[in-house]
Design a protein around this nucleic acid. Sequence first.
DNA 1: CATGAAATTCGTCAAAG
DNA 2: CTTTGACGAATTTCATG
Lengths: 163, 163
Amino acid sequence: MAKTQPPAAALDTVDRGILRELGDNPELTNKALATRLGIAESTCAYRVRALRDNGVITGRRLDVDTRALGYPLQAVIKVRLGSHSQEHVEKLYDDLVRTPGVIQAFHVAGADDFHLYVAVEDAEALRDFVLQHVTVHRVVRQTETLLVFELREGPGVLPRDTA
Amino acid sequence: MAKTQPPAAALDTVDRGILRELGDNPELTNKALATRLGIAESTCAYRVRALRDNGVITGRRLDVDTRALGYPLQAVIKVRLGSHSQEHVEKLYDDLVRTPGVIQAFHVAGADDFHLYVAVEDAEALRDFVLQHVTVHRVVRQTETLLVFELREGPGVLPRDTA
DNA sequence: CATGAAATTCGTCAAAG
DNA sequence: CTTTGACGAATTTCATG
């Protein structure tokens, strides 16, 4: 459970530069990053580590092409619950987020309680997924499945101010 | 524009091992990865590069805590279009995916056309975001905004077979 | 294709301003 | 907090099996 910074941690120009450059190109080496920012390599490494220790940078993720892996079908499964007891919701969330095929699981406020972003082999596998991993939970009242044509990554958020 | 493999690229045990280990821990060094898989470092680096060249590994991403950056509110904005001409849809998608604050943009099949996953400063900023960046497009007919309580990453997909 | 060793590059640490 | 410089570690290249 990651502790969240109460306010926004105070970030200076260097911190913002690191987040901007590393956001654009997460594979930059520490040396290349330092050069771009005009600071010493040791300083750069120190700052990056600090951002990590402060919980600003939480980690890295590998992007894979699910189609190339044999899972060409992507979908969003909207999950609506019957009971909303905290116990039930937590348990279901834990189970879903461990289910192979689930890429992301959004817990949202609204008529639907969860949005599951999944990748599967084909339409049959999608049907089986919903039946075997979602509606099998008795707390699930209803589901609705949307085909995902495409997912694009946006720029996300940058620290305030900087260009 | 990443070319997608027509079928699933043929992946052997080593490839699957790389994807499994790197999926679990994307920050493994090449050396550590090679050791875990019981192969030479040079071989490991070669294989990883090949997976990348074949479009199986598409890149890496930096995970940041949007709250720590001063954007504590996350939402999914469901966007419904009036016109569905390919030209309009493409143009809107391009614009949205470049808008600061947008983390991901799903193009989906259903009553809604897009799901925008965004992070903003507060409720007011969320309202402004919708007005200034979404409904400002004349092709947008309707929006619906859902608060995101939490997003968890799932295990995603693994190549078939391997444990 | 995979390997090990050489050559290069990179990250880390201590000392100091 | 930042930098320099030196050390140790990791990545890449390449010749060989």
